[in-house]
Design a protein around this nucleic acid. Structure first.
Length: 572
RNA sequence: UGGGCCGUCGACUAAUGGUAGGUCAAGUGCCUUUGGAGCACUUUGUCUAGGUUCGAAUCCUAGCGGCCCAGCCA
């Protein structure tokens, strides 16, 4: 991975000081005040190991771990691994790594599968009390019996089997006597409840599948709804925070807890994080990985924590963003720009500056002695004096950015243009004198003169220059691959699609641009994978793990704010 | 449509019956050896209609609008 999990990162931005009120914090504070749980705060983060964590999960993590920390409580990491067909150890490992990378530490590490035995015993108890029954209906028939949103359901013909028969059947389900899907165990609640979750929900299904932890021990697996609330209860969770769509399940969890007479955890729901131009469905993200649209779960275009990390995001940027975005019970969508703001804010303070040219245009300084080279002093980070300075080689032939020269400048264009003097950052003032063009009429070389008196970038006569551009000495330049990313999707709100449209219909064909031969200043030749820099005037870049000594590969994490681009856009 | 949840600047979020505030975005200036960063300033909001109250974003009623639920997924 690009950054060792949990490694300290000096110079990081502190958390925002404003810890604004929110209903979760208020609720916990209130419970503490009334000693509802004897002053105890126990939370849990309960992912299903069926995919990689994304930035939406970061919000849940910050809430579950952050709030417990804030109130002196504890947080368990519990994998809700009740569906062996979709789950895998690869995912549990990635989830652990991502949580640690964010800087959180769990107290207990549990799996819902740890409770399979207990859950089974409780099911038997419910059967004995006439509160659960084995149903032989097919999935299709169960669906039909469930009724609709407006019509009540109908009782299954198997609903009133004797306790003995239910016990016998359930034991044989466990013994593996029946094929997948042939029977289920259901809670006997109320087929006419307006809450569909209460219409005799399925507790167990038959599944002859190998589980990543329990192997082939179980041919039956509990449903999430039968496992989740009791898992919380077993862990004595006081504040079980989850997303809004589970609010309707609360009465069911309470029903199980009451029938079983076990510890009453309380559930509190909050809104999920949605981001503009960002897909947050684990199922859809897996599809992108499996169909090869992206290079993997950690593709830098992915909103996964591993993708963001590889892209160059810092944990502080993510955590500060999550804090600033806040939490409520409304269904909103946060602008990506807000995430990028907290990213830039953090990166600005901690990233060493460096010069790199993405799209090179050769500049020849005609009056600079051929064969001469000198070392210029450059500041590593104007935001951090302790970062010191470095030497950057300068010579007669340089590369500048193609964007930094225009033969015919548009209005308000301050950069290099025929007859105009500009400053080469930490170098000299130069004036463009003539250009060389190729067959197609494109400028391929700009000839300039320099003023030797302006070494370092200051004119002794005090004359000013309108702009400063970056450069790399041609003979000293390091060749690098640079990967420039755009949003993976072109649609602002992927949660609000037209009828019949799929998020994948809005893939951005330009989400990845590979620049094979960017020119970097020589100090970057052996940049360590994961190291972050600001390429002056361009943006923040992070060395990818595909880098090799002498042949670095950089990801553009995020561009710098670009005032000129804004002006140019307004002009067009 | 039955049930549940929710409507505050363009976005997100505070104000817990008593001055509608913050962050992002947008805009305008200042400054600048990054058109970066920073600084200052500005614009824009309580879904609607009634009611309670000295006073309502907040409480009540009715509308309107949005999200979630009919998996042997979580």
């Amino acid at each position: 991975m690009t950054t060792p999990a949990g490694a300290p990162e000096p110079g990081a931005s502190p958390a925002p000081e404003t810890r604004s009120s929110n209903f979760l914090r208020d609720r916990i504070a209130e419970d503490l005040k009334t000693s509802k749980y004897n002053g105890r705060v126990q939370t849990r983060f309960p992912p299903e190991p069926n995919g990689y964590l994304h930035i939406g999960h970061a919000k849940a993590i910050c809430i579950d771990f952050g709030l417990a920390d804030e109130f002196g409580g504890h947080t368990n990491l519990r994998f809700d691994d009740t569906n062996p067909e979709k789950e895998d150890v690869e995912y549990v490992e990635s989830i652990k790594e991502d949580i640690q990378w964010l800087g959180f530490h769990w107290d207990g590490l549990f799996y819902a599968s740890d409770y399979f035995g207990q859950l089974y015993e409780w099911a038997v108890k419910l059967i004995k009390e006439g509160k659960a029954y084995v149903d032989d209906l097919t999935a299709e028939e169960i669906r039909k019996h469930r009724g609709t949103l407006t019509e009540p359901g109908k009782d299954s013909p198997y609903r009133n089997r004797s306790v003995e028969e239910n016990l016998n059947l359930f034991e044989r389900m466990r013994a593996g006597e029946f094929p997948d899907g042939s029977r289920v165990l259901r809670a006997k609640i109320d087929m006419s409840s307006p809450n569909l979750n209460m219409r005799d929900p399925v507790m167990y299904r038959i599944l002859h599948a190998e589980h990543h932890r329990t192997g082939n021990k179980w041919p039956i697996y509990p449903m999430y709804d039968y496992a989740h609330g009791q898992s919380d209860s077993l862990e004595k969770v006081t504040h079980s925070m989850c997303s809004l769509e589970f609010a309707d399940h609360q009465p069911l969890y309470q029903w199980f807890i009451e029938q079983l007479g076990i510890f009453p955890s309380q559930q509190i729901e909050f809104d999920r994080l949605s981001l503009t131009y960002t897909l947050m469905s684990k199922r859809k993200l897996r599809q992108l990985v499996e169909q090869g649209t992206v290079r993997g779960w950690d593709d830098p275009r992915m909103p996964t924590l591993s993708g963001l990390r590889r892209r160059g995001y810092t944990r502080e940027a993510i955590r500060n963003f999550v804090t600033a975005a806040g939490v409520s019970r409304t269904n909103g969508i946060v602008e990506l720009a807000m995430l990028e703001h907290f990213l830039r804010e953090d990166l600005n303070k901690r990233s060493p500056r460096v010069m790199a040219v993405l799209r090179p245009l050769k500049v020849v300084i005609d009056n600079y002695p051929e064969g001469q080279a000198e070392e210029m002093d450059a500041t590593n980070n104007p935001e951090d004096e302790s970062a010191g300075t470095r030497k950057v080689p300068f010579s007669r032939e340089l590369y500048i950015e193609q964007d930094d020269f225009r033969e015919v400048p548009p209005p308000k264009y301050f950069r290099l243009t025929p007859g105009r003097e500009v400053r080469l950052r930490y170098g000299y003032f130069i004036t463009a004198k003539s250009v060389v063009k190729n067959d197609k009429g494109e400028v391929v070389e700009v000839h300039c003169t320099y003023d030797p008196a302006t070494r370092g970038g200051n004119a002794p006569d005090g004359r000013k220059v309108k702009s400063t551009i970056h450069w790399v000495s041609a003979q000293h330049a390091v060749d690098a691959e640079v990967r420039v990313y755009e949003n993976l999707f072109t649609k602002e709100n992927l949660g609000d699609l037209e009828e019949g449209k799929d998020p994948l219909d809005y893939l951005n064909p330009n989400s990845l641009e590979i620049i094979p031969h960017a020119k970097l200043e020589p100090s970057l030749a052996n940049a360590a994978p994961g190291s972050r820099y600001q390429f002056e005037r361009l943006g923040y870049f992070c060395a990818d793990l595909d880098s090799r000594p002498g042949k670095p590969v950089f990801n553009r994490t995020v561009a710098l704010k670009d005032t000129w681009a804004k002006i140019e856009k307004k002009q067009s």
